[in-house]
Design a protein around this nucleic acid. Structure first.
Length: 615
RNA sequence: GCGCUCGUAGCUCAGUUGGAUAGAGCAACUGCCUUCUAAGCAGUAGGUCGCACGUUCGAGUCGUGCCGGGCGCACCA
């Protein structure tokens, strides 16, 4: 464990019951290891570099009936020159119970630790009472990060592929904030470039004067874009016309600019509506159009300074020495590219927001090489800031890749409407007495939960094959399953509030195994936040070490935890009666219901999902 | 061709960085609503972890080779 990690643990987890239990176990084990008990081993001596064990050797047993934490003794066996089983036995036999940890038992090469049911449960409830809504959050040293996500293009439709970006972005922002970071979320919208020129060219030539229906703007423009792509593919000579349109736009031609502004606004209005609908808030909207012309200027300066060179009529930077091939900065027809604008954007971000430590770009992994080139190019021109490409894999359909160019997309609007139809029907079946507004609100919360969870439940690095029918599920490993567990906890609390109960002032009575199990799961929330947000704030931010880096940094870990927590809440709901027992038990159990409710609510929040009180 | 990546139950995916008997969800089958919301719960069935070697106390996990997908490799974004 590095110093940095220890620091972080001390800043955050030191104040939780689980962390305290780990500290106690390590302390107890170190006492045994540093005594003379083990010196009689075949080696006879302790390795000189052995100092003490730390919390990272503690794991979860495969079966929770074995214990609450365990420690495999294989690496210790090497140090002491004894068999793992022998070490485990010595550690277990000499373990003295602590306030939170009742016992240790050796099973083969493992030591399994059992928490004190009452003390640990009380400690978790105490954490919750102290932290409240901030349970699971860290207050560690502030680091300032700019997170760019939400980069749809105007003049195209927003489709389900964009949702993965938006939802990962939203969750990453919330995770980093929970980890105590100062996060600036920004959006970067592609409102210029070849696709826009192509669309406007075809609009003017074949659809001049036509207007989209309200709410159909993206679909309307997207269809024209698809048509344009088809026509240009059929007749290559049309490329010149499209290029001329882009040149006209980039040089500020009045008529084309007016058409661009009007159609652009259609798209922007639609996008803003979608961002708002799914809960994505940005501190700043960057547009490609605002960095295009300064970007071109920058590239020409690089050419003059000899940092860039001409090649086949285009301006490039040769990155062969970094094994990154050739990086194209400006097209041979003088028009801009992604790179032209991104070089400028990077500088603009750091000049607008002061004291930024890191800039994170959440973009799909097909652009991994591009970003490596971009970061290398920036470094070469003296821009030495921490830049990270957080790559996720693409959303495809069973038939193959979704592409606006080909026109085979499932739009966000279609997906949402289909989900809403189903969710409103399901809600109505359960609550025929609800009015329309209430039905609609709950259905929307469920739909949002289902959409977001579906996009986050899987490792971001793996592709999602989108199936509309499967995505319509509200059962099993889904958002609504978790939301439902939350609603059940709320329902108990609501009923309790109506009951006129005599509350016992202190928590009294014995915590049962079921009660403990629920709180044991709740206690993992801070640890989950720590692990899931650890990636971008520690170690090397090197895209070449992607697996190691992103392995930890992944909302899917939170999704998995959240689902487990919901299962434990349902276990509790099934096994432990709350309202029908005596005052003492009821008070204690209501505290646990409250703990489950809060943990579920916080965990869902990290995924960008609202927790309904009823559904 | 070069580079990256993936291959685990019928389907969609986990597998805590090499550790205990490979786990969930869906679909299938059997049950459970006079008992805090059945968007739930209990149970059954389902596996040669693509194939073959290798590394070691131990491999789904690491290495090499093969087979089979996906993505990228200068004027698209």
């Amino acid at each position: 464990m590095t110093t940095e990690d220890t620091q972080k643990f001390e800043n955050g987890e030191a104040d939780t019951a689980l962390h305290q239990a780990k500290v106690e176990i390590c302390h107890a084990m170190n006492n045994v290891l540093q005594s003379n008990i083990l010196r009689g081993g075949s080696k006879g001596e302790i390795d000189s570099d052995f100092s003490s064990i730390t919390e990272d050797i503690l794991e979860l047993p495969p079966d929770r009936s074995l214990g609450d934490l365990c420690s495999p003794c294989f690496s210790l066996a090497k140090y002491f020159g004894q068999s793992p089983a022998a070490i485990a036995k010595v550690l277990a036999d000499n373990f003295k119970s602590t306030s939170l940890v009742a016992s240790a038992q050796a099973v083969g090469p493992y030591v399994n630790f059992k928490f004190d049911r009452n003390n640990f449960s009380r400690a978790v409830l105490k954490d919750l009472a102290r932290d409240g809504e901030r349970y699971g959050n860290y207050s560690g040293h502030a680091e300032r990060l700019i997170v760019e996500y939400g980069q749809p293009n105007t003049h195209k439709e927003v489709h389900v592929g964009h949702l993965r970006n938006l939802f990962i972005g939203l969750s990453v922002v919330r995770l980093l904030q929970a980890a105590g970071k100062d996060v600036i979320p920004v959006s970067y919208i592609g409102d210029v470039g070849a696709h826009v020129s192509k669309c406007l060219w075809a609009y003017k030539k074949f659809h001049d004067g036509e207007r989209p229906e309200l709410g159909q703007e993206g679909k309307f423009l997207g269809a024209i874009y698809t048509e344009a792509t088809r026509r240009v593919e059929e007749d290559e000579s049309l490329k010149t016309e499209v290029s001329a349109v882009q040149q006209a736009l980039e040089s500020g031609d009045q008529d084309w600019t007016a058409l661009w502004q009007e159609t652009r606004q259609w798209s922007l209005d639609e996008m803003q509506g979608i961002f708002k609908e799914v809960g994505c808030d940005f501190d700043r909207f960057y547009y490609e159009s605002e960095v295009e012309s300064p970007g071109k200027k920058l590239v020409r300066e690089l050419l003059e300074q000899g940092q860039a060179e001409m090649s086949q009529g285009a301006i490039i930077m040769n990155l062969e020495s970094e094994d990154l091939g050739v990086f194209l900065l400006l097209k041979s027809d003088g028009n801009s590219l992604y790179a032209t604008k991104d070089l400028e954007l990077a500088q603009l971000k750091f000049s607008e927001f002061k004291d930024i430590d890191t800039s994170i770009h959440i973009v799909d992994n097909r652009q991994s090489l591009y970003f490596r080139q971009l970061f290398a190019a920036l470094k070469r021109i003296g821009f030495d800031k921490r830049m990270v490409h957080l790559a996720y894999d693409f959303v495809t359909l069973k038939e193959g890749a979704m592409s606006s160019r080909k026109g085979n997309v499932i739009t966000y609007a279609e997906f949402r409407d289909e989900m809403m139809r189903l969710a409103e029907k399901e809600t109505l079946d359960r609550h025929p007495d609800w009015d329309k507004k209430r039905l609609h609100e709950v259905a929307w919360t469920v739909v949002e939960g289902a959409m977001k969870f579906a996009m986050l439940r899987q490792d971001a690095e793996r592709p999602i094959v989108f199936d509309l029918q499967e995505s319509l599920a509200f059962e099993g490993f889904t958002g609504p399953y978790v939301q439902y567990a939350h609603a059940r906890m709320c329902s108990i609390e609501t009923k309790a509030a109506e009951m006129d109960i005599d509350y016992v002032s202190d928590i009294t009575g014995e915590f049962t195994e079921e009660e403990f199990a629920a709180l044991r799961q709740v206690a993992d929330l801070p640890h989950t936040v720590f692990v899931a947000s650890a990636g971008p704030v520690r170690g090397e931010l090197d895209v070449n070490r992607k697996k190691r880096f992103f392995g930890n940094f992944n909302p899917s870990l939170v999704a998995q935890y959240t689902f487990d927590l919901a299962q434990r809440a349902n276990d509790f709901y099934r096994d432990v009666p709350v309202l029908s027992v005596d005052d003492q038990d009821r008070t204690r159990r209501l505290m646990i219901v409250g703990a489950l409710r809060l943990a579920l609510e916080r965990a869902l929040f990290l995924l960008g999902i609202d927790a309904p009180k009823e559904m």
